[in-house]
């Protein structure tokens, strides 16, 4: 079984992307043998009223029965926008989301803003995963209208300190991944999955020896990044570093555990 914990639908404003609808995504999944994908709608990164994007995704998911069996929706929530709690309740109770994605850099708030901490606690209490994306695109090749900031791995630590018992996805791991020993220990103790789409996960073998095989899962960051590099990082691990049991954890086992499926 193969689960992609980092897929997106919707429109990326600054470049044409070729695989950004549920239909195209599922076709891509079929082609590459991906059984399930965690998906949210990128429009929510840019809409001020992010709920419109969650609604769009929900409508798209409802438009074809087969999507239900293949796509696990996450909502995009902006905790400094009016009505976010209503939105989250709606997403949870009517749209069946399993987690939320936050984009503080795009929505322009600090990760430790009290409203954000409140949201993460609320998500924890509701059993939702909280997904943080270190960057959407490389800021070097971004559009001049896009944001310039990217996170390093250490930038997500403050919220994990605030709410250590939430469950996290950390997605598209790029940039500096070095953590202090204390932060490394915090990460190890946390219930976190890092996806394999980001360029800083190329040394996956090393990362597994630092954090354990239970901390990683297949992710694509599609449609921004190519569909297969994240898988290649797992499948090409030598037997010595990761046997089939470990690879299965990375392919789906860890994701199934944290998603409860």
């Amino acid at each position: 079984m193969l689960i992609d914990i980092n897929a997106n639908t919707g429109h990326w404003p600054f470049r044409q992307t070729s695989c950004n609808s549920c239909r195209q995504l599922v076709a891509r999944m079929d082609e590459s043998g991906t059984d399930l994908s965690v998906v949210s709608n990128m429009n929510g990164i840019f809409y001020k009223n992010t709920q419109a994007a969650n609604e769009e995704l929900n409508e798209e998911l409802k438009s074809d029965r087969s999507f239900n069996n293949r796509l696990i929706p996450f909502a995009i929530i902006n905790p400094v926008y009016a009505g976010w709690k209503d939105d989250l309740d709606t997403c949870l109770n009517k749209m069946g989301i399993k987690g939320i994605r936050l984009y503080p850099l795009y929505h322009d708030y600090d990760l430790t803003d009290p409203s954000c901490v409140e949201l993460v606690r609320y998500a924890r209490d509701k059993g939702l995963i909280v997904a943080l994306t270190l960057r959407m695109v490389d800021s070097r090749s971004r559009s001049w209208m896009d944001i310039t900031a990217e996170w390093n791995l250490r930038d997500v630590i403050p919220i994990m300190k605030e709410v250590p018992d939430a469950r996290y996805f950390i997605l598209n791991i790029a940039g500096d991944i070095r953590l202090s020993q204390a932060d490394t220990d915090l990460m190890i103790k946390s219930d976190t999955l890092m996806d394999t789409s980001g360029r800083s996960t190329s040394g996956l073998g090393n990362l597994i020896s630092t954090y354990g095989a239970g901390k990683f899962a297949f992710g694509t960051h599609t449609p921004i990044l190519d569909y297969l590099t994240g898988l290649l990082r797992i499948e090409s691990l030598s037997e010595r570093v990761a046997d089939e049991t470990i690879k299965d954890l990375l392919r789906a086992g860890n994701a199934r555990r944290i998603l409860g499926i």
């Binding site: 001020k48 902006n78 400094v80 926008y81 009016a82 929505h107 322009d108 708030y109 409203s115």
Partner: peptide
């Protein structure tokens, strides 16, 4: 506001 509530800069 732009996005982000009534923060001073927006």
């Amino acid at each position: 506001l732009g996005v982000g509530g009534y923060r001073p800069r927006y």
